[in-house]
């Protein structure tokens, strides 16, 4: 049975058209000047084709079913869990629906506007649509425009930074006084030594 199923998948792979839409990452590349790839929306950086994890060739029966369901989601608002898409890819389909998404293929510059500024999947403070234009990953808090990350994280971690400043200042104050105390003690000891000598 397992062999039969593998055969069906292989047959499907050789026959089925692999849907990838490089127009979007190519546009992202163009406007951001970053070497963005399929990882922008797909689970694998090389796109859906192949046998690596996150690519069609590696999918099991359940995942294939999920993929089929995701591909037939033409209307917006339907929760999709395509195994070959990352959460940003799935979010696009959820927000726009497959139909609208396919329409945007010819004018990928409108994707950011259509997505809006609400969604921020990685909670890094930069909306997913802005990350699309910046050529950074909307699902990684480590990947983002450095300056935008700085501004956003500065607000997010303001209390941590304040606490660090207070702690380091107190530690320094204590240590400086410790050094001064040592110096004073050494001088007193030196004076006593001199007095004894005389």
């Amino acid at each position: 049975m397992k062999r039969f199923f593998t055969f069906i998948i292989v047959l499907f792979l050789t026959q089925a058209q692999v849907f990838a839409y490089p127009e979007f990452y190519e546009y992202s590349r163009k406007v951001s000047n970053r070497k963005t790839n399929c990882a922008l929306c797909h689970s694998h950086g090389d796109g859906p084709e192949g046998l690596e994890p996150g690519q069609i060739g590696s999918l099991n029966k359940d995942e294939m079913e999920k993929l089929m369901r995701a591909r037939s989601t033409f209307n917006l608002g339907s929760k999709v869990e395509s195994p070959i898409l990352n959460s940003f890819g799935n979010q696009i389909i959820f927000t726009l629906g497959k139909k609208k998404f396919l329409e945007l293929k010819t004018h990928p510059q409108d994707l950011a506007r259509e997505l809006g500024l609400k969604s921020d999947l990685d909670s890094d403070g930069i909306p997913d649509s802005v990350e699309y234009l910046d050529g950074t990953l909307a699902i990684s808090p480590e990947d983002g425009h450095p300056w935008k990350l700085f501004v956003s994280n500065l607000q997010k971690y303001f209390k941590h930074i304040l606490l660090a400043i207070v702690s380091v200042s107190l530690l320094l104050y204590g240590f400086i006084n410790f050094l001064k105390g040592l110096d004073l003690a050494a001088k007193v000891k030196g004076d006593n030594h001199e007095t004894k000598k005389h």
Partner: peptide, 26 residues
């Protein structure tokens, strides 16, 4: 102390990887 604080603020706000030319996902 000052330099340590600057380093801490940089580290908590700007991930070093954000300067890479592309995201490293694999």
């Amino acid at each position: 102390a000052i330099v340590f604080l600057i380093l801490f603020i940089l580290s908590i706000t700007i991930p070093f990887e954000s300067f890479f030319p592309y995201p490293l996902t694999e």
